[in-house]
């Protein structure tokens, strides 16, 4: 047999076996992975609602706001949970944040991200978001530079992550205050 044809067939065979194996593992793990993601989202939504319940997702096509979940309490909408995207050191970061109708940030969680463990990944911790919560209403903007923080040391290192998170949260607040536009 032509040696080039022989090598091509052998390589193609190895690739097909690998593809079959990967397809099998994927079909086995995909439902588990989807279930983890669903539980993670549900837990985050439950955690973000201070009072009331979060409704169904309403997709948005803004540059930062990608979806909103109305929070209703006794039939009236009292605020929104926004799905936001920001840009961090390791690429895109996904955030979920709840706001009251005047744009005040109630709670925020950093979801999917590729930040550096030990540095930017610290933004996943609950304490990280505390410096932003309660701000975002008229005359009390969300700080978007470390210089505007009361305790800048709290975020030592990882300036890019800080800027990405804070800008996304500030944009979410603006979105609410500007009448959900």
């Amino acid at each position: 047999m032509n040696p080039i044809l022989d090598r091509t067939i052998r390589l193609a065979l190895i690739c097909s076996v690998a593809a079959l194996l990967l397809g099998f593992v994927d079909s086995m793990t995909a439902p588990q992975i989807a279930e983890h993601k669903r539980i993670e989202l549900q837990n985050a939504l439950n955690d973000l609602v201070v009072t009331g319940t979060a409704g169904e997702a309403e997709p948005q096509d803004g540059p930062v706001v990608t979806a909103r979940y109305p929070i209703s309490d006794g039939g009236a909408v009292t605020g929104y949970i926004l799905a936001l995207k920001g840009s961090g050191y390791g690429g895109e970061m996904k955030l979920l944040a709840s706001y009251s109708l005047d744009g005040t940030l109630l709670k925020a969680i950093l979801m999917e991200n590729n930040e550096t463990p030990g540095l930017g990944k610290k933004a996943e911790k609950r304490e990280y978001m505390e410096k932003f919560t309660g701000r975002g209403n008229q005359g009390n903007p969300i700080p978007t530079t470390k210089a505007k923080l009361e305790k800048p040391d709290a975020v030592g290192g990882s300036t890019i992550t800080f800027t990405g998170v804070s800008r996304a949260l500030a944009a979410g607040s603006d979105y609410i205050r500007e009448g959900l536009k």
Partner: peptide, 18 residues
């Protein structure tokens, strides 16, 4: 490379699932 990349992807999927 095909063999190694396949095992890494399997490891990644198994870790994400379990």
């Amino acid at each position: 490379i095909v063999v190694i990349a396949s095992f890494v992807t399997i490891l990644d999927l198994l870790m994400q699932a379990y």
